[in-house]
Computed example of a mutant assay.
Amino acid sequence: MRLGADRVRVRVPATSANLGPGFDALGLALALHDDVEVRALGSPDVVVDVTGEGAGEVPDDERHLVVQALRAGLDHAGAPQSGLHLVCHNRIPHGRGLGSSAAAVVAGLAAARGLVAEPQALSDDVLLALATELEGHPDNAAPAILGGATLAWGGTGSVRAVPLDVHPDVAPVVVIPPTTLSTKAARGVLPPTVPHADAAQQAGRAALLVEALGRRPELLLDATVDTLHQEYRRSVMPHSLALVDALRSAGVAAVVSGAGPTVLALARRLEGGGTDADEAIAAAFGGAMGGWRVLPLAVAHGGVEIVAAANG
């Protein structure tokens, strides 16, 4: 297959995975986006310019995750490889459980779709399968591709995902700490087995969460009870779990976002503006934020988007 364009620009949202009990399955796209511009070069050079999050920290050559994913997409489509110039405008914080690596992978795969002459070769289903292969699990990749809330299942080579309804009163708020935590470290403290009673409770709460997200947001506090992963991670993110405890005690459906250490509040919109989490978050910090940031973020109902593709 030949290339149909030599320039493409894509936009991809942040995501929050798990949402409490939906470990490695549920995810939510958030209106905080990375923008990536790609130009195919006639030379074999690879140049990556990064502004915003990760600038000066991420690789600026073939090792860059967007480049690796783009190459995987071109290979899958049978398209020729080329030199590349990438300009990445990053807004998604790195290492904080907001899907920055999934965003990079999905951005690279979508860029490949925008470059090839037959974009249908890289359908959403193909993007999800390739992203899962690169990421290891689909919980962030699915909402990054499809937007909104998603439920993903299956393993490498057979992964699938479906969109879920999100009630208009659901108003996500993320509370981002100044510290980072790798997914590897967060997964490293999880036990190989859990008690049968915990697993049974988790299944019920995950099922309830689908109903609460879509139709009954007043049930979100009960629906976000987790027994599978958050408590085991307290040792590597004690401040995040302390904040989750404080918010839940105040009636706010708070969870660890993905592998953390960001905290996600699945708050409810108030008629006069703001959310039911605002006062509880303010009270938890007592006016001393200590480097934490509070970001109210709308649900991103659209997933990754090819903003423009053209020949130079």
Rank of each mutant, 00 (worst) to 15 (best):
187 R>S: 11
139 D>S: 10
157 G>E: 12
214 G>W: 10
144 A>W: 00
242 A>N: 07
222 D>T: 04
295 L>G: 03
83 G>H: 13
117 A>C: 00
81 Q>T: 11
13 P>M: 09
284 A>P: 09
248 R>E: 10
20 G>N: 07
43 S>E: 14
196 H>N: 00
55 A>K: 08
285 F>S: 07
263 V>C: 11
252 V>N: 02
79 A>V: 03
112 A>G: 13
231 E>S: 09
90 N>T: 04
17 A>G: 01
93 P>A: 08
167 H>D: 15
90 N>D: 08
235 S>P: 04
152 A>R: 07
57 E>P: 02
279 E>N: 08
240 S>K: 09
71 R>G: 00
63 R>W: 02
51 T>V: 09
178 P>Q: 04
101 S>P: 01
251 G>E: 02
153 W>Q: 00
14 A>S: 09
77 A>S: 01
68 Q>Y: 03
240 S>Y: 09
131 A>I: 06
70 L>T: 04
12 V>W: 01
207 A>M: 13
33 H>A: 01
306 I>Q: 07
160 R>F: 13
108 G>W: 03
211 E>L: 14
251 G>P: 03
55 A>Y: 09
176 I>W: 11
69 A>Q: 06
251 G>I: 02
237 M>V: 07
94 H>P: 00
27 G>I: 01
159 V>A: 05
111 A>R: 02
292 W>V: 08
281 I>T: 04
148 G>D: 06
75 D>K: 07
